[in-house]
Design a protein around this nucleic acid. Structure first.
Length: 399
RNA sequence: GGGGGAGUGCCCGAGUGGUUAAAGGGGACUGGCUGUAAACCAGUUGGCUCUGCCUACACAGGUUCGAAUCCUGUCUCCCCCA
């Protein structure tokens, strides 16, 4: 395929240096040396990222890739952000151990909107081209068949995920099998020069080259970036496993979540999110605090970290109440504690009873006794009800 | 189309007629310790008007004094052969 490109065979020293800078944090940049030759073409490259809007929010895991795109933009290149409104309906099998349900189009569209808005917290709008892949994937079936005629089943089944699932005798839908084709066709449609993704995307990214090749296009090079572990320190960060830090999380929550991350992955967080090592000589506590401050500042502005950190100190270090507590108004008199807790925190009454029995419920900081369960409304009015360590509501006697 | 296997609580997974709201593990929650975390210890983990009652082992019926366990049908999934 090299005959269709106008790349010089030996990249300039300058291009090599530039490529090295851009791939420093990447796990792999394939094919070897290709990026430098592309950079030498002296035109802005088209850097592709596809995101399936299966959830409405962007979390820090996404930002690793977005930050890389930003670097490309700063180097004068153009980002092609593909909203996978069509592929979201299919479901990417990458890293999956089970089939996932198809999403309904309305939800996908809503997700896509918030997603993009959040992506522009990082990307430069002026150097970004946003495309929806339904634009070209909503095709006639004979056109689809001609796509499907190209790759072989054996080729598709090579991938890890499928191997594992077959070995475990788990189902793989035909649709999932076709997914890489669709993603690959995205690359053809936007004439991508470079595609970026997490290491779990390697197969799909490489497959894009196959697709481009069958359409006799220049082949994209690919860049895989490390996967950011979630706040549990084990699994990939994702909304569905609940181990994520969202870019729209309020400052206190963002700071708190950072502080709760296991020490073991602190170094990775620093590297992947800030592209540097934790400060020399700082203990894990301080390193996490600094990480938290910087992230809060990045997403909420330079003034936000102070209040967020103070909130954290108050709640978790000094075990005091937050300065602002949401009201919960109740009408019953006398008030039945389990019912009150259920209403205020969305737990079941049984759970509430257990929590009380375990000393997990406090009123103005004092643990409540198991008995009695009923209190006169006047006695509770204005006091702060607490469940566990971090859930608070100010009780307000209402009509 | 034929044959075989399986569906249990948030997840995995024991249990094949009766002290089974259902072993064990994971996760989660609460308390302790702590640095916020990890590790560790203790407790909890279907619901409720809670010394008891109700609902639950894919779904719907049936057998039985009694069923997650037996029977029938339905749905779903997996494997093998074609």
């Amino acid at each position: 395929m090299s005959n269709v490109t106008q790349e010089p065979s030996e990249p300039s020293a300058q291009a090599i240096a530039q490529a090295e800078a851009l791939t420093a944090t990447a796990v792999e940049a394939l094919p070897d040396g290709r990026l430098a030759r592309q950079l030498d073409q002296g035109r802005p490259l088209r850097i592709k990222l596809g995101i399936d809007p299966t959830a409405p929010d962007i979390h820090l895991g996404h930002t690793v890739v977005l930050n890389k795109l930003r670097e490309f933009q700063e180097a004068g290149h153009r980002v092609v952000l593909i909203i996978g409104d069509y592929t979201a309906r299919v479901g990417d099998p990458s890293g999956r151990s089970a089939q996932r349900p198809m999403l309904d189009p309305a939800a996908i569209d809503a997700n896509a909107d918030t997603f993009m808005e959040q992506a522009f917290k990082i990307l430069d709008r002026d150097k970004t081209e946003v495309r929806y892949n339904s634009e070209w994937l909503k095709m006639e079936s004979d056109q689809l068949f001609s796509l499907m005629a190209r790759p072989t089943v054996a080729r598709l089944l090579e991938r890890d995920d499928f191997q594992k699932r077959m070995a475990a005798e788990e189902p793989i839908s035909l649709l999932e099998l076709v997914y890489p084709l669709l993603q690959g066709y995205d690359s053809v449609a936007v004439e991508a020069d470079v595609e970026i993704g997490g290491t779990d995307q390697k197969f799909n990214l490489l497959f894009g080259r196959d697709m481009q090749s069958s359409f006799e296009q220049p082949l994209q090079s690919i860049l895989t970036l490390p996967i950011l572990p979630g706040t549990d320190g084990v699994k990939k960060m994702s909304k569905s496993t609940g181990n994520y830090i969202g870019v729209t999380d309020p400052p206190e929550e963002m700071f708190g979540k950072v502080m709760r991350v296991p020490d073991a992955i602190l170094g990775q967080y620093w590297q992947l999110l800030l592209s540097e090592d934790p400060p020399e000589g700082a203990g894990p506590n301080e390193a996490k605090r600094e990480l938290g401050r910087r992230l809060v500042a990045r997403f909420h502005g330079p003034d936000a970290p102070v209040a967020a950190e103070e909130h954290f100190n108050r709640l978790f270090v000094r075990h005091e109440m937050p300065d602002e507590v949401e009201d919960f108004s109740f009408a019953e008199d006398p008030a039945h504690m389990p019912a009150l807790l259920a209403g205020a925190f969305g737990v079941s009454r049984s759970e509430a009873r257990r929590a009380i029995g375990q000393g997990g419920v406090k009123l103005d900081g004092e643990a409540m006794p198991a008995e009695p369960l009923d209190y006169p409304a006047d006695e509770l009015d204005g006091r702060v009800l607490q469940l566990g360590k971090r859930r608070f509501r100010r009780l307000v006697k209402g009509a």
